[in-house]
Structures are given as C-alpha cells and as structure tokens.
C-alpha cells in the first residue's frame, strides 16, 4: 500500500502545482483586460479634464462653434454631440426594422437551406472592414445621394446614416435571431392552438417574448453606430456645422480623427476632451446594454 500511496502523493502534488500555476496564469491574463480598461480610463480622464476646465464644461458641451486653429479659436462640441446622436438615431430607425425582419425571417420563416445562404451573407457583412464600407459609400452612395436630391455635394449626414444603418445590421440580426430562436416552442404552439396565424404568432408571441434580446441587439447597434470612425469620415463631409440631414456634419469620433494627426498644444487637449465625452457616451450605452441583458435573463 505504501508505494501506491507515495505515488499518489507525488501525483497529487504535481497536479496541485499545475492547478496553482494555471490559476495564476488565468488571473494574470484576466488582469490584462482590467489594466487596459483602467489605463484607458485614467489616460482619458487625466488628459481630457484640463481643457474642459479651461473652457468650462457647459461652454464646451453647449458651444455651437468649433474653430480649433483659428486666430480667435472656439471650442464648442454641441454640433459633434448632436451629429453623433442624430446619425445613430437615423441608423437605428432604418437598420432596426430591416434587421429585425431579417432575424424573424431567419429564425421563424425561411427554410433551413435559404436561411443558411442568408446567414452566410450576414456573416460576410459583419466581416467587411469599415474602410471598405466607407470607400463604397464614397464612390457609389455619395454621388447617388447627390444626384437624387440635386445637391452640390452628396457627402452629408444622410449618407452617413445610410452607411451606418447597413453596418449595424449584422449585430442586430445575429443577436435578435438568437433571442427569437430561444423562445420556447410551447409559446408558439399554444398560440397556434388558439387559432392564431403564423404572422400573429410571430408579432404577438415570439417577438414580445424575445424583446430583451432584441433590445440588446439594438443597443449593440447603437454602440457600433456611435463609435464608427472610418466609414463616417469618408461619407459625411466632416464640416463642423450644426447637423442637418442634407448638409455635411462632423461627429464626435470623426472630430477626433480629423484633427489629431496635426494637432498640438491646446487643440490636442480639446481632442482628448472630446474623447472623454465619447467615453462617457459609450459607458452609458454599456450600462443600458447590461440592464437590457439582465432583464433578458430574468425573462
């Protein structure tokens, strides 16, 4: 018995060491994320606050003029905030109905073979880099918008909204589809048994039952739309006006990207302050997303 016990002892010890080591490795890797988030937050707060303090928070957030390099500079980011909000709302208004209908089609209506084809297309759409969206938008969509509405330039807020609404589709579709597929069959069968048609069942039973998941998909889309830079930079015209659907506009993200490469001194600090404002927006969206997801698990 003794040799066996001794063997077991050694074996257990090695096992313990491996376990402990792996635990430390996992802990360290987990920490990498936390350190990254903490560093980014600290960097933005430390670098973003000074310019806001100098300009004044209210003047910074509510100022309507942005002339960062002028002889008489003005640093008001209300146009950027409103542009980000408008373009996101616009993208959601167009993207959500299309995305939701596609998700319903994939989860409930389409036959499996067709669903697989559509699904591949959706996945492909998700894999296209944003610079490609921007390039196609610049070459195809912008001239089209210009001709359709007889404008001087097609690089306007509307073009950005159209590009963004396509870009947020994959996220909305895949999350909503998963939520719809997770609706218990019994709910739908009960609905059919009561004499409801398929359409009635989908809109009165399946969609309400999956609404938390669908909401999560929408919030995901909002996050993507508000955070997008490259594609928007190429189609929105980037002029720091107060936003108007048929005029060029500049969002929070593109305001940073436009000027960062040449900015020095105070101008650079204000760009970091815009970053801080954007960061706060994204944090709020994340909180809403968490809230939506939690409610989803409860239901």
């Amino acid at each position: 018995m003794r040799p066996y016990n001794a063997f077991l002892g050694v074996h257990m010890k090695t096992k313990n060491i491996v376990e402990k080591t792996m635990q430390a490795v996992f802990f360290a890797l987990g920490m990498v994320t936390i350190i990254a988030v903490a560093t980014i937050s600290a960097f933005l707060i430390i670098n973003g606050i000074p310019a806001i303090r100098e300009i004044g928070l209210w003047a910074f957030l509510s100022g309507q003029e942005w002339r960062s390099t002028g002889a008489n500079p003005a640093f008001g980011i209300l146009p950027f905030i409103l542009t980000s909000i408008y373009s996101t709302i616009g993208a959601i208004l167009i993207g959500v109905p299309i995305g939701l209908m596609t998700a319903i089609f994939l989860a409930k209506v389409a036959n499996p073979r067709l669903a697989a084809v559509v699904n591949t297309a959706v996945e492909l759409l998700a894999g296209i880099p944003s610079v490609v969206y921007g390039f196609v938008g610049m070459i195809v969509l912008v001239p089209l918008v210009q001709r359709t509405f007889a404008l001087a330039s097609g690089a306007i807020l509307l073009s950005a909204i159209l590009v963004l609404s396509v870009m947020i589709l994959p996220g909305i579709i895949s999350v909503s589809r998963t939520a719809l597929a997770a609706v218990p069959r019994e709910y739908e069968e009960a609905s059919f048994a009561l004499g409801a048609t398929k359409t009635e069942t989908i809109f009165k039973v399946s969609v309400p039952a999956a609404k938390s998941g669908i909401a999560a998909g929408v919030v995901l889309g909002i996050g993507r739309a508000i955070g997008e830079v490259m594609a928007v930079l190429m189609v929105m015209g980037n002029v720091p006006n107060m936003p108007n659907l048929f005029e060029p506009a500049r969002s929070l993200t593109t305001a940073i990207a436009m000027e960062l490469s040449y900015a020095t001194g105070f101008q650079r600090q204000t760009l970091l302050s815009i970053g801080l404002v954007l960061f706060c927006f994204i944090m709020m969206i994340n909180l809403i997303l968490n809230f939506a997801l939690k409610r989803g698990y409860k239901a």
Partner: peptide, 30 residues
Amino acid sequence: IGREAGSGSRGAFDDIMGIEDQVVHDQELT
C-alpha cells in the same frame, strides 16, 4: 472641398488666398 484644419495644404491654401478663418466647406477630407 478642402482639407482639415491644421493640415499643411489647408494652411498654405488659406494663407495664400487670405481667407483664414472665413472658409466655408461642403466637405473636409484628411
């Protein structure tokens, strides 16, 4: 169509034209 504030081309163009701080663009690119 013009360049973004701070770029060398924009600075040179606005400066030579004498239109600094008065430019009205329909599109700014980087």
